[in-house]
Design a binder for these strands. Sequence first.
DNA 1: TACCCGTGGGG
DNA 2: TCCCCAAGGGT
Length: 286
Amino acid sequence: MAALVLDWYPAAARDLPWRRADTTPWGVLVSEFMLQQTPVARVEPVWTEWLARWPAPSAMAAASRAEVLRAWGKLGYPRRALRLHETAGVIASEHGDVVPSDVEALEALPGIGSYTARAVAAFGYGRRCPVVDTNVRRVVARAVHGRGDAGPARTAADLADVDALLPPDDHSAAVVSAGLMELGAVVCTARAPRCGICPVREECAWRAAGRPEYTGPRRPVQGFAGTDRQVRGRLLDVLRGADGPVERAALDAAWDDAAQRDRCLDSLLVDGLAEQHDDGRFALPA
DNA sequence: TACCCGTGGGG
DNA sequence: TCCCCAAGGGT
């Protein structure tokens, strides 16, 4: 299976800016932060701006949190922007402005978990390092295990599954890792997989079994309308859009339910996504 | 381990 | 319209 993916990927891969040969590990790291739960299409323009503006960790570390949050715009989950900013500072001050290349050091950085650490090692440094994201888990569940979907994560087993697939040498392994993700993103999709154009179709256990439907537990769908998440988004949007501090009245206009609004504003302050000045007005953090 | 954390495009 | 979700991480 790895050989098929290895042959398929170079010509099939989308031309994404963070995949260009001249992209630095820092560029890869920034892309991985932005791609955590945000679609490629929305990340592309922002990533390009960010790398032009902050080409090294130290450059980003020198910016204020407010600048970073404004530049993050509406990518969503703005705490990622704060963690990336924090990580940039740690890399600048403790790693000589060089993005670490080993998984353990990467995982110690804010906002970097198992997936992101491995993605940076593999795609930023071309290492043989199993990368397991939702796409890879689905591809392995189908092609290897013959199941329609991956179900709940089994971290150690998932890593072992992928590790068993990777060729021994660094470069080929990194290409296969990227290829497995690409396969899940554009061919072996969650709904309406395009088996007709799949490079692995002849070896796919799921296809061989007649594409049985997934019967395991479904992950509950997260609601959004009316949640604190929506309210926080509204409030932060007001702060992002303002040139400077805003009166409480400006935030009051963003959501009717006063109790929920107050709770959310407080949580933004706690998270460091907003701050209150001595005059009582609110703003993005300095 | 569930649950929380934003946003907007597509079926 | 409404629902699903898209390269996760932290707690």
